[in-house]
Computed example of a mutant assay.
Amino acid sequence: MFFSLTLFLYERGKLLPGLRARVRRAATPIFFAATLLIFGCTFVVGTTVAGTVLWAVGIASTPILDVAPTAQKLTYAFVTAALLVAVLRMRDLIGPRMFMSFLLGRYHKPRREERVFLFLDLIGSTRFAEERGDLEAMLYLGHAFEVLARPVELYRGSIDDYVGDMALVTWRMGPDLKDAAPIRCLFTFLDQVERDAGEWRRRFGEAPRFRAALHCGPVMTGEVGVDRHKITYFGDVINTTSRLESLAKALGEPVVVSAELLARLGQLPEGVTATNLGRHSLRGRGEALEVVGLRRSIGED
């Protein structure tokens, strides 16, 4: 119980969150070794605490439990921990929600569902690369997507893909959209970047700026590939969201959302204001789409 609870708190980011974040960013061999070491230390701490509790209440005669390291115990512990670490790394590489979908075979056969899509684009990445080089640009971009991961996890989204300097995040329509989760996710991320602007400038010479577009609609979701499996989406809503992001650039708006999605999300998070930008024709779409711009209210943190 003590061992499992400690591991659970660690994996949920409630125990030693800074250490967990650094280990997850490490290369796979380092991640593997470090996580095995952490699991080993957790086992020692867990058995020590458990033994002390049992000794204190008079059940055990000594505060040290009988965990003598026999060859059989060590082999069992190492193999079990190695399998667990491999599963955790796989989950991190493809995303926790995607991992569960693969594990449960949810999309082995394509299914029709409604989803929200967020296209998040880093502004000025080409200029940044020309001025500072591709390596620095890659580190800059990687750090931005690293910051994005926490709000996406917090608000029950899933990062579907990274394409150049753009991230594609998605949510299933339903309980995952409670309290306008996609909007909260986006502004939580933007607020975090703004709070860390000084650190960004010290590290990279400038703080990043982003442009975002959100839309919703029906898609076909299914697994594709043989050597490399991927859960992918097919539907007009993805193309429309991409063109909304281009429209945001043309209008000079940092965040645009379709009025259709906004109506389905309900009340906006506190401090976020909406401005109707009218109806706009998008390439490849017959009917004009009503678009809304979102911004933080002046004076909000």
Rank of each mutant, 00 (worst) to 15 (best):
P96I: 06
R24N: 14
D92E: 15
A60P: 00
T188V: 08
A26F: 02
R202H: 13
A129D: 04
G299S: 08
L5E: 13
F2A: 13
G46I: 02
E136W: 10
R115L: 09
T273M: 13
I231S: 06
Q192M: 12
E153Y: 04
R283L: 12
P110V: 05
E113D: 14
Y233S: 03
R127H: 11
M1E: 08
L268V: 07
P254I: 05
K109G: 00
L54I: 01
V44N: 00
P96F: 10
I298P: 03
C41P: 00
A250Q: 15
P208S: 02
T241C: 15
S242C: 13
G293V: 08
E114I: 06
N239Y: 07
E199P: 00
S4Y: 06
L186A: 08
T70G: 08
K178C: 07
I231H: 10
G235A: 02
A180R: 01
L244D: 06
I159Y: 12
L135H: 13
I30K: 00
A129Q: 07
D134P: 00
E199H: 14
P269F: 01
A71Y: 11
V224W: 14
E131I: 03
G51L: 10
G142L: 11
T47N: 13
L7I: 11
G299L: 11
D92L: 14
L282R: 07
D66G: 04
V67Q: 12
F187A: 02
R243E: 06
R203C: 12
Q72P: 00
A56K: 04
A259G: 03
R203N: 09
Q72M: 13
T6M: 14
P151C: 03
G58E: 02
L261P: 02
L65H: 06
I94F: 07
E146N: 13
A213D: 05
T232W: 01
E206F: 00
A129E: 07
G299H: 08
L7M: 14
L74V: 15
L186K: 06
P63S: 01
A181Y: 02
R150P: 00
R184H: 10
I38M: 07
Y162T: 05
T52P: 00
E113M: 12
L261I: 05
Y233W: 09
E146I: 06
M1C: 09
E245I: 04
T126P: 07
T275G: 02
R283S: 11
V219P: 10
F117E: 09
A197C: 09
D66T: 01
D121E: 08
I183K: 06
L141E: 01
F31N: 00
K249I: 13
P69V: 10
G222V: 11
R97P: 05
R283D: 08
Y140A: 08
P182Q: 06
F3K: 11
T221S: 12
H229Q: 15
P218D: 10
P17D: 03
L135G: 00
F2K: 01
T170G: 02
H108W: 05
V163A: 15
